[in-house]
Protein backbone atom coordinates (compact mmCIF):
# COMPACT_ATOMS: atom_id res chain seq x y z
CA UNK A 1 0.00 0.00 0.00
CA UNK A 2 1.33 3.40 -0.99
CA UNK A 3 1.80 5.62 2.06
CA UNK A 4 -0.63 8.29 0.87
CA UNK A 5 -0.31 10.56 3.89
CA UNK A 6 3.47 10.68 3.54
CA UNK A 7 3.17 11.54 -0.18
CA UNK A 8 0.66 14.29 0.58
CA UNK A 9 3.01 15.79 3.18
CA UNK A 10 5.83 15.69 0.65
CA UNK A 11 3.74 17.50 -1.94
CA UNK A 12 2.76 20.16 0.58
CA UNK A 13 6.42 20.70 1.44
CA UNK A 14 7.33 21.18 -2.24
CA UNK A 15 4.39 23.55 -2.63
CA UNK A 16 5.52 25.65 0.36
CA UNK A 17 9.15 25.92 -0.73
CA UNK A 18 8.96 28.06 -3.85
CA UNK A 19 12.66 28.89 -3.80
CA UNK A 20 13.96 25.37 -4.39
CA UNK A 21 13.37 25.58 -8.15
CA UNK A 22 11.60 22.23 -7.97
CA UNK A 23 7.93 21.57 -8.58
CA UNK A 24 5.69 18.52 -8.68
CA UNK A 25 2.33 18.07 -10.39
CA UNK A 26 -0.01 15.16 -9.83
CA UNK A 27 -1.21 13.41 -12.97
CA UNK A 28 -4.75 12.14 -12.78
CA UNK A 29 -6.43 11.05 -9.60
CA UNK A 30 -3.83 8.68 -8.21
CA UNK A 31 -0.85 9.77 -6.17
CA UNK A 32 1.30 7.11 -7.76
CA UNK A 33 2.02 9.03 -10.95
CA UNK A 34 3.29 12.58 -11.15
CA UNK A 35 5.54 14.93 -13.02
CA UNK A 36 8.34 16.98 -11.56
CA UNK A 37 10.25 19.89 -13.00
CA UNK A 38 13.73 21.17 -12.24
CA UNK A 39 15.56 24.19 -13.54
CA UNK A 40 18.89 23.73 -15.29
CA UNK A 41 21.67 24.90 -12.95
CA UNK A 42 23.35 28.16 -13.90
CA UNK A 43 26.88 27.96 -15.19
CA UNK A 44 26.11 24.66 -16.95
CA UNK A 45 25.01 23.86 -20.51
CA UNK A 46 21.57 23.21 -19.00
CA UNK A 47 21.16 26.80 -17.74
CA UNK A 48 17.88 28.37 -18.72
CA UNK A 49 16.20 25.03 -19.41
CA UNK A 50 13.26 23.58 -17.53
CA UNK A 51 13.37 19.79 -17.40
CA UNK A 52 10.29 17.64 -16.87
CA UNK A 53 10.66 14.32 -15.10
CA UNK A 54 8.18 11.48 -15.02
CA UNK A 55 7.74 10.16 -11.46
CA UNK A 56 6.10 6.85 -10.59
CA UNK A 57 5.77 5.72 -7.01
CA UNK A 58 5.90 1.99 -6.31
CA UNK A 59 3.41 0.74 -3.74
CA UNK A 60 6.21 0.21 -1.20
CA UNK A 61 7.28 3.86 -1.39
CA UNK A 62 9.06 5.29 0.66
CA UNK A 63 10.80 1.96 1.34
CA UNK A 64 11.43 1.57 -2.37
CA UNK A 65 12.73 4.44 -4.52
CA UNK A 66 10.52 6.49 -6.84
CA UNK A 67 10.96 5.65 -10.51
CA UNK A 68 12.16 8.76 -12.28
CA UNK A 69 12.86 9.34 -15.92
CA UNK A 70 13.47 12.51 -17.91
CA UNK A 71 10.64 13.40 -20.28
CA UNK A 72 12.50 16.43 -21.58
CA UNK A 73 15.31 15.21 -23.82
CA UNK A 74 18.70 15.95 -22.37
CA UNK A 75 22.33 15.41 -23.43
CA UNK A 76 24.15 14.17 -20.33
CA UNK A 77 26.47 11.23 -19.60
CA UNK A 78 24.23 9.84 -16.85
CA UNK A 79 20.90 10.28 -18.64
CA UNK A 80 19.91 8.28 -21.68
CA UNK A 81 19.59 10.54 -24.71
CA UNK A 82 17.19 7.93 -26.13
CA UNK A 83 14.69 7.39 -23.35
CA UNK A 84 15.57 9.66 -20.42
CA UNK A 85 16.57 6.78 -18.11
CA UNK A 86 18.74 8.02 -15.26
CA UNK A 87 21.82 6.51 -13.65
CA UNK A 88 21.90 7.79 -10.09
CA UNK A 89 22.67 5.70 -6.99
CA UNK A 90 19.93 7.19 -4.80
CA UNK A 91 17.31 6.03 -7.30
CA UNK A 92 18.59 2.48 -6.88
CA UNK A 93 20.24 0.67 -3.97
CA UNK A 94 21.29 3.87 -2.23
CA UNK A 95 17.73 5.08 -1.85
CA UNK A 96 16.62 5.70 1.73
CA UNK A 97 13.21 6.56 3.18
CA UNK A 98 15.10 9.51 4.71
CA UNK A 99 15.05 11.02 1.22
CA UNK A 100 12.03 12.65 -0.37
CA UNK A 101 10.76 13.41 -3.87
CA UNK A 102 12.08 16.93 -3.39
CA UNK A 103 15.56 15.81 -2.35
CA UNK A 104 15.59 13.29 -5.21
CA UNK A 105 14.72 16.04 -7.73
CA UNK A 106 17.38 18.28 -6.19
CA UNK A 107 19.84 15.41 -6.63
CA UNK A 108 18.90 15.28 -10.31
CA UNK A 109 19.58 18.99 -10.51
CA UNK A 110 22.96 18.38 -8.86
CA UNK A 111 23.60 15.57 -11.35
CA UNK A 112 23.14 18.09 -14.19
CA UNK A 113 25.92 20.18 -12.59
CA UNK A 114 28.29 17.30 -11.92
CA UNK A 115 28.18 14.57 -14.58
CA UNK A 116 29.88 11.28 -13.68
CA UNK A 117 31.18 10.05 -17.05
CA UNK A 118 32.95 7.16 -15.31
CA UNK A 119 29.59 5.60 -14.45
CA UNK A 120 27.56 6.43 -17.56
CA UNK A 121 23.97 5.75 -18.54
CA UNK A 122 24.59 6.92 -22.08
CA UNK A 123 27.90 5.63 -23.42
CA UNK A 124 27.92 7.93 -26.46
CA UNK A 125 27.51 11.09 -24.41
CA UNK A 126 30.03 9.90 -21.84
CA UNK A 127 32.63 9.26 -24.51
CA UNK A 128 32.06 12.68 -26.01
CA UNK A 129 32.32 14.25 -22.55
CA UNK A 130 35.68 12.60 -21.95
CA UNK A 131 37.22 12.98 -25.42
CA UNK A 132 35.65 16.08 -26.95
CA UNK A 133 34.51 18.17 -24.00
CA UNK A 134 33.75 21.34 -25.96
CA UNK A 135 31.59 19.38 -28.41
CA UNK A 136 29.74 17.90 -25.43
CA UNK A 137 29.10 21.39 -24.01
CA UNK A 138 27.78 22.76 -27.28
CA UNK A 139 25.62 19.69 -27.93
CA UNK A 140 24.18 19.80 -24.41
CA UNK A 141 23.50 23.52 -24.79
CA UNK A 142 21.84 22.95 -28.16
CA UNK A 143 19.62 20.24 -26.69
CA UNK A 144 18.69 22.56 -23.82
CA UNK A 145 17.76 25.32 -26.30
CA UNK A 146 15.82 22.91 -28.49
CA UNK A 147 14.02 20.68 -26.00
CA UNK A 148 14.04 22.34 -22.58
CA UNK A 149 13.14 25.89 -23.56
CA UNK A 150 10.62 25.70 -26.36
CA UNK A 151 7.64 24.82 -24.26
CA UNK A 152 8.44 27.20 -21.44
CA UNK A 153 9.10 30.17 -23.72
CA UNK A 154 6.05 29.28 -25.74
CA UNK A 155 4.02 29.06 -22.57
CA UNK A 156 5.20 32.46 -21.35
CA UNK A 157 4.23 34.04 -24.70
CA UNK A 158 0.78 32.49 -24.52
CA UNK A 159 0.33 33.73 -20.95
CA UNK A 160 1.32 37.27 -21.95
CA UNK A 161 -1.16 37.17 -24.81
CA UNK A 162 -3.96 36.38 -22.35
CA UNK A 163 -2.70 39.04 -19.94
CA UNK A 164 -2.95 41.60 -22.77
CA UNK A 165 -6.54 40.43 -23.27
CA UNK A 166 -7.21 41.36 -19.65
CA UNK A 167 -6.92 38.03 -17.76
CA UNK A 168 -4.69 37.75 -14.71
CA UNK A 169 -1.36 36.01 -15.13
CA UNK A 170 -2.22 33.31 -12.60
CA UNK A 171 -5.55 32.50 -14.23
CA UNK A 172 -3.97 32.37 -17.68
CA UNK A 173 -1.17 30.09 -16.52
CA UNK A 174 -3.61 27.82 -14.69
CA UNK A 175 -5.88 27.53 -17.72
CA UNK A 176 -2.98 26.81 -20.06
CA UNK A 177 -1.54 24.20 -17.76
CA UNK A 178 -4.84 22.44 -17.31
CA UNK A 179 -5.36 22.27 -21.08
CA UNK A 180 -1.85 21.15 -21.87
CA UNK A 181 -0.99 24.48 -23.50
CA UNK A 182 -3.87 24.46 -26.01
CA UNK A 183 -4.66 28.16 -26.49
CA UNK A 184 -8.21 27.77 -27.76
CA UNK A 185 -9.25 25.40 -25.00
CA UNK A 186 -7.58 27.65 -22.43
CA UNK A 187 -9.43 30.71 -23.74
CA UNK A 188 -12.71 28.85 -23.58
CA UNK A 189 -11.93 27.86 -20.01
CA UNK A 190 -11.00 31.42 -19.04
CA UNK A 191 -14.20 32.84 -20.57
CA UNK A 192 -16.47 30.22 -19.02
CA UNK A 193 -14.78 30.49 -15.62
Amino acid sequence: MLDVSRVQKELMEVERDKLSGVSIQILGSSLSHMQGTIEGPSGTPYEGGVFTIDIQLPSAYPFEPPKMQFITRVWHPNISSQNGAICLDILKDQWSPALTLKTALLSLQALLSTPEPGDPQDAVVAEQYLKHYSTYVSTARYWTETFAKRSSIGLQEKVMKFVEMGFSEDAALGALQSTGGDENAALEKLCSG
Binding site: P65, K67, S80, S81, Q82, N83, A85, L88, Q121, V124
Partner: peptide, 17 residues
Protein backbone atom coordinates in the same frame (compact mmCIF):
# COMPACT_ATOMS: atom_id res chain seq x y z
CA UNK B 1 8.57 7.14 -30.06
CA UNK B 2 11.58 6.06 -28.10
CA UNK B 3 13.61 3.06 -29.16
CA UNK B 4 15.50 1.10 -26.55
CA UNK B 5 18.96 -0.40 -26.88
CA UNK B 6 20.12 1.76 -29.75
CA UNK B 7 23.46 2.51 -28.24
CA UNK B 8 24.06 -0.22 -25.72
CA UNK B 9 22.45 1.66 -22.83
CA UNK B 10 22.77 -0.02 -19.49
CA UNK B 11 19.64 -1.46 -17.88
CA UNK B 12 17.10 1.06 -16.64
CA UNK B 13 16.90 1.87 -12.94
CA UNK B 14 13.67 -0.06 -12.48
CA UNK B 15 15.17 -3.15 -14.10
CA UNK B 16 18.13 -2.99 -11.74
CA UNK B 17 15.80 -2.50 -8.78
Amino acid sequence: EMVLDLDGDRPRDDEIM
